[in-house]
Nucleic acid binder design. Structure first.
Lengths: 121, 121
DNA sequence: TATACTGTGTATGTTATATATGTACAGTAT
DNA sequence: ATACTGTACATATATAACATACACAGTATA
C-alpha cells in the first residue's frame, strides 16, 4: 500500500486518503482480502491523526471497498473485475461531471475541452 | 446579469456567485464598464447575506475582473478579447487539471477520458 | 452654501458546521 | 497477561454564512 500526501489543494486529508485507497483497490493494486495496515500505523507514518484515517476507512467501508473486523483489522472486499470497472467509470464520470458545467458556461465546445485534455495529460 | 443558485454540491455560495460572474465577463455577456448591481440588491434577490456577495465581489476584484469605487459601485474591468480568452483557458485548464490526477491513478488513458467526456457533454 | 437624504461599499461581532486532533475505552489474538 | 487491533468521547481550529451598524459619495432642497 502506498499513500502520498501533497496537500497542495484544500481537499480534506481524509478525502485524499480515501481516494488513494479506492484507486488502488479499483486498479487491483490492493487485492481482495488484503489486510490494510492499522489506522494507528498509517496515522503515525503520515503524521496524521488516527481519527482522520478512521474517517477515510469509514468512507471506504460505506462504499463497499473494505470490511472491518473489530479488534482484528480492515480487509479489502471481494469485487469482480466488472464491479471494479464500474466503480472506475462511476468515479471518473462523477469527477469530470463537476467540471463540465463550468466548461459549458465558458462556451467551450466538446472539441475545445478535448484539446485542453490532450495538452495536460 | 444573471445568477442562479442551485446548491446541489457543497461548493460555497460565494464561490458559486464568483464563478458565474467571471464566466459572464469572460464570454462578454457583461461588457467592460458595466455597473454591477449593488451587493445589497443581489443579496436581497438571491436571499443571501450581503457579506457573502461582498466576498465574491472581493475575489472578482483580486482577480482583476472588476474594480470598485467606494460609494458608487462596482464596474466590469476593461479586458481585451485576448485577455478574456487567456482567462477562459486558464480557468478551464485549472478545473480539468484537478481531475486528471485521479484519472491517471485510475489508469484511464487519454482516449478513455475523451470517451467519457463525449458521453457526458 | 449648508444640510439632509439615499445610494453605494465596508467593518465588526456572532453562530453553525466541518476538519482535524488527543486520549481513554473495548475487542481479539498469542 | 500482553500487545496488538478498531472505537468512542470531548475538544480545538478554521471556514462559511449571517445580521447589524458604520463610513463615504452623490444629489436634492431649504
Amino acid at each position: 500500500m502506498n499513500i502520498i500526501i501533497t496537500n497542495n489543494t484544500n481537499q480534506p486529508l481524509y478525502e485524499i486518503v480515501y481516494e488513494q485507497i479506492t484507486t488502488q483497490i479499483i486498479t487491483g493494486k490492493l487485492p481482495a482480502q488484503f489486510c490494510l495496515p492499522s489506522i494507528r500505523g498509517v496515522a503515525l507514518e503520515l503524521s496524521i491523526s488516527v481519527i482522520t484515517i478512521k474517517k477515510a476507512w469509514e468512507m471506504l467501508e460505506r462504499q463497499g471497498f473494505i470490511y472491518t473486523i473489530a479488534g482484528k483489522g480492515c480487509y479489502v472486499a471481494t469485487l469482480t473485475a466488472d464491479e471494479r470497472n464500474n466503480k472506475r467509470i462511476e468515479l471518473a464520470t462523477a469527477k469530470i461531471s463537476s467540471s463540465i458545467g463550468l466548461m459549458k458556461s465558458l462556451e467551450l465546445s466538446k472539441a475545445d475541452i478535448i484539446s485542453i485534455i490532450k495538452d495536460i495529460y
